[in-house]
Amino acid sequence: MQLLRLWLLQLRYAATRELMFRANFFVWVAVELAWFVIQLAFIGVIYHHVEEVAGWRRNEMIVLVTTNQLVIQIFTAFLMPGLSKLPELVRTGKLDFVLVKPAPPAFLISTSHLEIGPLANGGIAVAMLVAAVGGLGLHPSWGEMAWYLALVFAGLLVHYAVLMTLVSLSFWIIQAESVLLGYYTLFQVARIPREAASGWFRVVFTFAIPLLLVANVPAASLIRGGQPGPTALFLLSGLLAAVFSTAFFLFGLRRYQSASS
């Protein structure tokens, strides 16, 4: 409860800071929107030539891509801005100011910043999602929608785990900005239909780093109804990944030598 109150306080402070630069907000909405349009354009070009990919038709693929976009935008709004600051905090020694506060450092770092722009893009993703679901002739119940949202939030856990693990490398590598590039690159995997992958690729990105489940499981639950096996696997692997990443962060923290003289 105390952490929730702290999170809300951090959110309020971060929102005030964000709203000081309103023009910046609109520019970043345009930037994020452009990247989303790229994904939709890609689908448009592919389905200009084919009817389906790995059993996914055009509107189903849009549900997959918009679900992925929704997870990314929520993550980018609430958790990513803070986490991506960790390499700089470690390098400059400003992590000291976080460590002296009486709250878990992983929590303080990941919730310290907020970006409002991605929330607007999340809204656009939802609008596209509704249109695609309508195009498929689906009428999900409130329960199914709530379950979909719960799975979207489980996807956030996987994003958190991957980025937390990557940025924690900054305890070993002096300049670790390239890990952010790694995060963006890795999450290209989440946009692929799970049925498209096979062999070692499917095994690695389902069990070791469950990126193939992040958007696939929520999207498939909306389109084809609940799938107990993949869903249970998704929830379990997401939880395990989050635990591992936090442990990895704490392990790295032991190497931190502070900047004080």
Binding site: A54, I173, I174, E177, T185, Q188
Partner: peptide
């Protein structure tokens, strides 16, 4: 910053594998 550089180049190769999987399905 060699490690930073090496990581960057390692990650740069991943899109080819993603393309391989996706286009393989197409």
């Amino acid at each position: 910053y060699r490690w930073n550089y090496f990581l960057r180049s390692v990650f740069s190769a991943l899109p080819l594998l993603v393309s391989w999987v996706f286009w393989g399905a197409v």
